[in-house]
Design a protein around this nucleic acid. Sequence first.
DNA 1: GAACGCTTCAAACAGGCGTTCGAATACTAG
DNA 2: CTAGTATTCGAACGCCTGTTTGAAGCGTTC
Lengths: 206, 206
Amino acid sequence: MINPHFSTKERILSAAEDLFAKSGFAGASLRQVTSAANVNLAAVNYHFGSKENLINELFKRRLDDLTGARMAALDKVKSTRQPTLESVLEAFVQPALSLASDRGGGSSFVRLLAHAFAEHDQRLRRFVSDNYGHVLKEFAKVIAHLLPHLSKDALYWRLDFVSGALTYAMSDFGMIKKPVGITDEQHRRTAAEHFVRFAAAGLRAP
Amino acid sequence: MINPHFSTKERILSAAEDLFAKSGFAGASLRQVTSAANVNLAAVNYHFGSKENLINELFKRRLDDLTGARMAALDKVKSTRQPTLESVLEAFVQPALSLASDRGGGSSFVRLLAHAFAEHDQRLRRFVSDNYGHVLKEFAKVIAHLLPHLSKDALYWRLDFVSGALTYAMSDFGMIKKPVGITDEQHRRTAAEHFVRFAAAGLRAP
DNA sequence: GAACGCTTCAAACAGGCGTTCGAATACTAG
DNA sequence: CTAGTATTCGAACGCCTGTTTGAAGCGTTC
């Protein structure tokens, strides 16, 4: 399961991502993690200091990638002559979906995000929103510009629905809904198409 | 916090709902629960047998109410001359929202649902979908009838987005979004209006 | 090859976990 | 009032938790 060619740190991160996604942060123990990573128990505290910090590093790694890809995609869309709502939504969802179906890991990360949302724990929530918030705001600004008739209130409600729909749908992504016989790439494109169409219409609602 | 007039069983259920919603099922211990409920530690195993069964009872109690209220509301809508998509969605969301803002408890339950969905754990997931699935199917049938042009595939994708939007929007419900100075009732109605409008437009997407 | 920093290791630490048990208490029926 | 059942209680069970520790193993540099 865990590639032995990777460094101890990376193997811990991968195993932790999988196990925390499966059982939650409190539900998976460091002994399970280190055992799955083929690594000594003490390695976690040596390399990460504590379990909580390991969780933070986990999020930092993926969120940096995700937000980076999203901002790049958004910039690309903004630089086109006439950005459409659909293209902006695509810039939002495609990086998330490609992360979700990334074979080199990351397929568990979306579920981790779902856990983070479910957690009432303030520390983790703030950490996520600190690394996440500015991207959402940037998208909100562009979308607000594309939907000038929409009140600020309505916009925020709808953006919340959009991220909820995405997170929730992606938690099951590849687990339940993918029909046999089609590739990850096809499945991802189908999901993105359905999502963009749904979200755009919802945002444009009268 | 916990009403001392209630029975031991009910106090355990209430405290457990709050704490599990805050910290997850593995994150909150029976000692925390019994302490918050002002009840002896052994009472949980006496009344519920085990921690896992306590969790199941927790879900059963609320889901029975929720699905009951939803089916009743749906039946009422179906009996009208011309059911609209909006009225069906209202029948779906209103019981959930009134549960979420129910002061006598239940305000934590939605977050519990989010936890359950984040959990990879098959037992809990199946338990929820067993008590939940037939209601979703019933709504799907009615909605499919109202949107005859929509393919089965597209319908299922969109319904998934709808439940995701609802679940995650409601997880924060009353915590973040409620402005000061307006009542729960007003807030609930606002949320329902925004949601129904968004979801209806999304479902109707071309 | 000795000395060095970096990493790994087995073992132990104190503390929390879910669960169990037998005695003590509360309540109800005869 | 008494007998019997239902509930509560404190204490303990064995197990698992995150973290720490000091020794052992490593590759590099002088």
